[in-house]
């Protein structure tokens, strides 16, 4: 199973990016193989509108079924939900911390957007 974690860096020791739509990038982590890859999100950083929707598309195209990020807005939430992606919120810490906490079951799953669009 693949997990996407928003990050401001490029590897597992990088900090979590608390933004989703305009996150710098994503680490896509495979829980079965332990492999990970980095996906750049630069184009969405510049998007005039719909950044959350496009970020959702990006991670869904990468085949993830779980997203860990700091905050998620209403349109990103709607898109991810339609794609069956579960969203867990975590602010602060590294990508590695997020993976460990997710595996331990200590992250809370969100059932809706926790911020307004353009917060």
């Amino acid at each position: 199973m693949k997990i996407a974690i928003t990050t401001s860096g490029r590897d597992l020791t990088s900090p979590i990016d608390e933004r989703f739509g305009r996150a710098s990038g994503f680490i896509i982590f495979d829980t079965e193989t332990g492999a990970h890859e980095y996906l750049d999100n630069k184009q969405n950083l510049q998007a005039a509108q719909g950044a959350g929707i496009q970020s959702a598309k990006t991670v869904m195209d990468a085949g993830v079924s779980v997203l860990i990020t700091g905050n998620v807005g209403p349109k990103a939430y709607a898109t991810l939900s339609a794609g069956g992606v579960e969203i867990f919120l975590k602010n602060g810490g590294t990508v590695d911390d997020a993976i460990v906490e997710y595996k331990a079951g200590s992250l809370s799953k969100t059932g809706g957007a926790n911020v307004e669009g353009h917060w």
Binding site: I53, Q54, A56, K57, M60, K75, A78, A82, G84
Partner: peptide, 18 residues
């Protein structure tokens, strides 16, 4: 051009306000 309609699981999802 405005991300108002996206395909999720081969189904169009509409964001009318955009």
């Amino acid at each position: 051009a405005f991300n108002a309609i996206v395909l999720v699981r081969a189904k169009p999802l509409l964001f009318a306000e955009m």
